[in-house]
Amino acid sequence: MSTAHEKIQLQANVPENLFGKRLDQALAEMFPDYSRSRIKEWILADYVKVDGQILNRPREKLLGEELIEIDAQIEMQVQHKGQDIDLNIVFEDEHILVINKPMNLVVHPGAGNSDGTVLNALLNHAPEIVNVPRAGIVHRLDKDTTGLMVVAKTIPAQTHLVEQLQAREISREYEAVVVGTMVAGGTVDEPIGRHPTKRTSMAVRESGKPAMTHYRVKEKFRAHTYIRLKLESGRTHQIRVHMSHLRYPLVGDQAYGGRPRPPKACNENMVNMLRMFRRQALHAIQLELTHPVTGEWLSWQAPLPKDFVELLEVLREDKSEHGSGEV
């Protein structure tokens, strides 16, 4: 394990509109690139001077026009190494990058996946990202979910992206194929928490955190439905749990009930496709957000992966052969 540091030096006079404010509140407004919790840590660690004197009391009131000096050092324990893993980069500048994640790639190291992850690939591609918590990862996709992810390359960019995510200002849209024929679209507004008996799974639970998923029907097949979804929150396995809760689990989702259910009289090609589709049929197809530094509204699209396209082709062939009636 090695140690990396980033030195932060900031200086400004307290503006008139912050006279009488607490130190931590004023600094959070004066230096919005850094979270209030991080600023409070700096105050308590004696990194903040007011008119040349260390002030380590976050609740201390400011009189006005004081000179604020912050000389902080962010220390990070580097446990992971960069690895030469291909990243499909859709967009990159000095502040952020957007990737189109393939299937079978874990985002962050954990139990059973100590390396070979998106994080390892990021450390190799942009070594300076080691100074950003979680290597700049602000939201995740499951191992076998494909599609768009945004990553922050600096701490200020990460701070602003996390704020957008919490304020539900980042738009994330997905496409999926579910088992069963939906009548129409709708919204699932059900809290999600850890499953009471399956440690690695989630479930709709009253004690869980609020979660909302909007969905609409794009195309109906004999025994499946192609849908578009939009998240209002970002809970673990949210789409998978919500669709399973509606009794329309995602095709290929073995954890939440998406086992193969071929319609009657379908051909062998269809049977094989459903049996061999071993991942949840879920793709993060669109990502929209405000650039954390320039303020520009940005939008990206990621084409459906090959296996998803082939699944839709087989479902369409079956519908053409047998008609659209649900079986």
Rank of each mutant, 00 (worst) to 15 (best):
P102C: 06
E94V: 01
H80D: 06
N124T: 04
M103F: 12
D86H: 12
V107N: 00
Q77C: 00
A111I: 15
I99A: 05
I89D: 02
V90K: 15
H108V: 10
N120L: 04
I96S: 14
N104Y: 03
L105R: 08
V90H: 09
V98A: 08
D84H: 09
I85E: 02
D84T: 06
V107W: 06
I89K: 11
L122A: 03
L119E: 10
A121L: 02
Q77T: 10
Q83C: 01
H95S: 15
N120Q: 07
N100I: 14
H95M: 14
V106H: 11
P109G: 04
N100V: 13
V90C: 08
F91R: 13
D84K: 14
K81W: 12
V106Q: 13
V90R: 15
G82F: 00
Q79D: 04
M76N: 11
K101R: 01
H95N: 15
D115S: 12
N120R: 07
L97K: 10
G110I: 09
N88Y: 04
I74P: 00
S114Q: 13
K101P: 00
F91N: 10
V90S: 07
I96N: 15
Q83I: 00
L122K: 06
V118K: 06
E94C: 02
Q77N: 12
V107S: 05
E75M: 03
H95L: 12
Q77M: 05
G110H: 11
I74Y: 07
E75V: 05
M103N: 13
D115I: 07
D115A: 09
V118M: 02
H108F: 14
L105Q: 12
T117P: 10
N88D: 14
E94R: 09
I74R: 12
M103V: 14
A121M: 01
L122I: 05
I96G: 15
K101E: 01
H80N: 09
E94I: 04
G116I: 06
P109T: 03
V90Y: 09
V90L: 08
H80P: 04
V107A: 09
V118P: 03
N120P: 00
N100F: 14
I85V: 01
Q79V: 00
G110F: 13
E75A: 03
Q77E: 09
M103H: 13
L87C: 07
V90E: 11
V118R: 04
M76R: 15
L97M: 15
H125Q: 08
L122Q: 02
L123R: 00
P109M: 04
L119T: 11
P102H: 04
H80S: 02
V107H: 03
V107G: 04
L97D: 08
I99L: 14
G110S: 15
L122T: 05
I89F: 08
G110E: 06
Q83N: 02
I74V: 13
V106S: 10
E75H: 03
D84Q: 10
I74K: 12
L105V: 04
E94Y: 06
H125V: 03
A111C: 10
A126V: 13
D93G: 00
L87H: 11
L122R: 08
M76F: 11
V107E: 05
Q77L: 06
K81I: 07
V90I: 15
